[in-house]
Nucleic acid binder design. Structure first.
Length: 434
DNA sequence: GAGTGTTTAGTAAGTA
DNA sequence: TACTTACTAAACACTC
């Protein structure tokens, strides 16, 4: 009984996504119906809520630092104005789902109708969502404005300075590429799209775009020569003009342990932080089924991902399918009931054990004598190639992921986090030298 | 003039 | 404490 004072069991049920006291009962003036805009609570947590009395109010994201939803908002169907819904944790095959089950159910916050709560998404995320929703390879600034105001009531009532921030973000963020308007195209301004160079990052990057550690820097700057021309950036899009005063990257400053990396990963997911990666994970991975009739080609087109890189060879489809179905590929030894449609990368936070289960196939133990960087570098070329291949042959991978993977299981490419996860899983889960 | 795009500067928060 | 990231504000130039 006395353990009640020190036990942290309550923490499991602690809701960081608790009720929003400011949430209006009905739609505000000028706001559309909320019918279409209900979020995932019922989808994700049909079992009801288990709010802790200690749950902080969620009205102010800045207070909690925790956005209210897990996973990635996507737009359903062909309605570009449809509200973002958070389908990731509802998707049985998404790596988030398991984690979602461990958290308390969020209350619904209807950003489409609630003008008081600022959406917890960065401007880059908002831009990305707008681009995603438009399903066009390129969008205009006004399209982005419209989508945001349409889907986030807050910005309908906010000072227009946020539009300046949007423009600023488009210009500053390397992820976004300006496509000049053709001379015969009337209208103001140009078009914007996701820079295809960063499509691989979107597939890979589950990490929040916070603080690129030095080894991640070195991963991109000192990567193998065959990656020299690759835009591989493991932690998201850099700003277009970085502070160049920090060229002296501290070599020792890194995400020290795979355990920490994974915990950080978990924390990010727990925070429900929406980022570009999650958006594109939805698009490029299986979660995109929420787009109903939208296939992966359409998704890529919507992202403006030009199929401009060509890689020859048989590993195409292999790497591609692995990439599209990374979690399944790695974890194909899991029970059939756990097999599911693809998702863009393997979520190590939830599937490290699956990785462990198949490490024999991966021959990873043979690399134990390597340090992490060596392991990662040994896989980076494949990873990069795989991501490129993904762009090239999306449909095959979706259709025939398993057979191809079974052909060459030892060549399954590992992403940065996968590498860490594997290492961590191995070192933490495996009996010593077993 | 309005909208668009770029750039600079400052602040706050998070992290090593 | 140093650094990164995100945000905000503002100035300026360009185009329609």
């Amino acid at each position: 009984m006395d353990d009640s004072l020190t036990s942290l069991h309550w923490l499991q049920n602690f809701s960081i996504l608790s009720a929003d006291p400011e949430r209006p009962v009905g739609a505000g003036p000028g706001c559309p119906s909320t019918q279409e805009h209900l979020y995932l609570k019922r989808l994700c947590f049909p079992g009801g809520s288990s709010d802790s009395p200690s749950s902080p109010p969620a009205a102010d994201t800045a207070t909690t630092g925790m956005p209210r939803y897990l996973g990635s908002p996507v737009t359903s169907g062909s309605d570009s104005s449809a509200a973002p819904r958070f389908s990731s944790c509802a998707h049985p095959g998404n790596g988030y789902s398991q984690l979602s089950m461990q958290t308390s159910p969020p209350e619904e916050v209807d950003y489409k109708t609630n003008p008081k709560v600022k959406p917890p998404y960065s401007y880059a995320s908002l831009i990305c969502m707008a681009m995603q929703a438009s399903k066009q390879p390129k969008v205009t600034l006004s399209t982005i404005y419209n989508w945001i105001t349409e889907n986030f009531c807050y910005y309908r009532h906010a000072e227009p300075s946020w539009q300046n921030s949007i423009r600023h973000n488009l210009s500053l963020n390397k992820c976004f590429k300006k496509v000049p308007r053709q001379k015969d195209e009337p209208g103001k301004g140009g078009f914007w799209q996701i820079d295809p160079q960063y499509a691989d990052m979107f597939v890979n990057g589950i990490f929040k775009r916070r603080r690129m550690s030095s080894n991640q820097y070195s991963s991109s700057t000192n990567r193998p020569s065959n990656l020299a021309g690759s835009p591989y950036q493991p932690q998201g899009c850099k700003r277009k003009h970085l502070s160049h005063t920090k060229n002296h990257v501290k070599a020792t400053r890194m995400t020290d342990s795979p355990l920490l990396a994974r915990e950080a990963h978990k924390a990010d997911i727990l925070k429900g932080d929406f980022d570009l990666a999650s958006v594109f994970d939805d698009v490029l991975g299986g979660t995109y089924s929420n787009f109903e009739d939208l296939d992966i080609n359409t998704a890529l087109n919507a992202l403006g991902c030009d199929m401009e890189v060509s890689v020859q060879g048989r590993q195409h489809s292999v790497g591609l399918s692995r990439w599209c179905n990374g979690g399944d590929a790695i974890g194909q030894s899991q029970p059939v009931g756990h097999q599911h449609q693809s998702y863009g990368y393997m979520d190590l936070s939830t599937t490290s054990m699956d990785c462990m289960a198949s490490m024999g196939e991966l021959h990873i133990p043979q690399q134990l004598h390597l340090n992490q960087d060596q392991v990662l570098q040994s896989h980076l070329p494949q990873f990069d190639e795989a991501s490129i291949m993904f762009l090239e042959q999306p449909e095959e991978a979706v259709l025939h992921p398993w057979e191809e993977i079974k052909e060459e299981p030892q060549e399954i490419p590992l992403t940065l986090d996968q590498g860490f996860g594997l290492c961590e899983g191995f070192f933490t889960e495996m009996q010593p030298w077993e």
